Simulated scan of single mutants.
Amino acid sequence: MNYAKLFRLLESRGMTMYTLRRDKVVGTATLEKMRKGEGHIDTRSLESLCKYLGCQPGDIMEYEDE
């Protein structure tokens, strides 16, 4: 999965990874996995992000065939 859309969305709203950590949306380890495109992200984290940002999962991630 590629989370570049998430980071573009944050930038467009004037937000950063720190904002998500500060507001306890998701943890540091989860954000690092997303930034690096490594590991798996659980659906609770995706749900928290979507609720906080008022978006759908497809707005923050996309599938990439390896």
Rank of each mutant, 00 (worst) to 15 (best):
residue 1 M to D: 15
residue 1 M to P: 15
residue 2 N to M: 09
residue 2 N to P: 08
residue 3 Y to P: 05
residue 3 Y to Q: 04
residue 3 Y to A: 07
residue 4 A to S: 15
residue 5 K to V: 03
residue 5 K to Q: 13
residue 5 K to L: 15
residue 6 L to Q: 07
residue 6 L to R: 02
residue 6 L to C: 06
residue 6 L to T: 06
residue 6 L to P: 00
residue 6 L to M: 04
residue 7 F to C: 06
residue 8 R to A: 10
residue 10 L to Q: 07
residue 10 L to I: 06
residue 10 L to T: 07
residue 10 L to W: 11
residue 11 E to F: 00
residue 11 E to G: 01
residue 11 E to P: 01
residue 11 E to W: 00
residue 12 S to E: 15
residue 12 S to C: 03
residue 12 S to P: 04
residue 14 G to L: 10
residue 15 M to N: 02
residue 15 M to T: 03
residue 16 T to V: 04
residue 17 M to D: 06
residue 17 M to C: 11
residue 17 M to W: 00
residue 18 Y to K: 14
residue 19 T to C: 03
residue 19 T to E: 10
residue 20 L to T: 03
residue 21 R to S: 08
residue 22 R to E: 13
residue 22 R to V: 02
residue 22 R to M: 07
residue 23 D to R: 03
residue 23 D to E: 14
residue 23 D to L: 01
residue 24 K to R: 13
residue 24 K to C: 01
residue 24 K to D: 13
residue 25 V to I: 11
residue 25 V to Y: 00
residue 25 V to R: 01
residue 25 V to M: 02
residue 26 V to T: 04
residue 26 V to K: 02
residue 26 V to M: 04
residue 27 G to E: 04
residue 27 G to N: 15
residue 28 T to I: 03
residue 29 A to W: 11
residue 29 A to V: 14
residue 29 A to L: 11
residue 30 T to L: 07
residue 31 L to P: 07
residue 31 L to M: 14
residue 31 L to E: 05
residue 31 L to F: 05
residue 31 L to Q: 03
residue 32 E to A: 05
residue 32 E to W: 09
residue 33 K to V: 00
residue 33 K to Y: 06
residue 35 R to L: 14
residue 35 R to Q: 15
residue 35 R to C: 08
residue 35 R to F: 13
residue 36 K to F: 05
residue 36 K to H: 13
residue 36 K to P: 02
residue 37 G to K: 08
residue 37 G to R: 05
residue 38 E to P: 01
residue 38 E to A: 01
residue 38 E to G: 00
residue 39 G to V: 05
residue 39 G to E: 10
residue 40 H to V: 04
residue 41 I to Q: 09
residue 41 I to Y: 11
residue 41 I to L: 13
residue 41 I to G: 02
residue 43 T to F: 12
residue 44 R to F: 10
residue 44 R to V: 01
residue 44 R to K: 09
residue 45 S to C: 13
residue 45 S to K: 09
residue 45 S to P: 12
residue 46 L to C: 07
residue 46 L to Y: 02
residue 47 E to G: 00
residue 48 S to K: 12
residue 48 S to N: 15
residue 48 S to L: 09
residue 48 S to Q: 05
residue 49 L to Y: 12
residue 49 L to W: 09
residue 49 L to D: 12
residue 49 L to S: 09
residue 49 L to F: 12
residue 49 L to E: 10
residue 50 C to L: 06
residue 50 C to A: 07
residue 51 K to C: 05
residue 51 K to L: 06
residue 51 K to R: 15
residue 51 K to D: 14
residue 52 Y to E: 00
residue 53 L to D: 11
residue 53 L to G: 07
residue 53 L to Q: 14
residue 55 C to L: 08
residue 55 C to R: 09
residue 56 Q to G: 00
residue 56 Q to T: 05
residue 56 Q to M: 14
residue 57 P to R: 11
residue 58 G to R: 12
residue 58 G to V: 08
residue 59 D to Y: 05
residue 59 D to P: 03
residue 61 M to V: 08
residue 61 M to R: 14
residue 62 E to K: 07
residue 62 E to P: 06
residue 62 E to Q: 15
residue 62 E to S: 10
residue 62 E to D: 13
residue 63 Y to C: 02
residue 63 Y to M: 06
residue 63 Y to R: 13
residue 64 E to M: 06
residue 64 E to F: 05
residue 64 E to I: 05
residue 65 D to S: 10
residue 65 D to G: 05
residue 66 E to L: 06
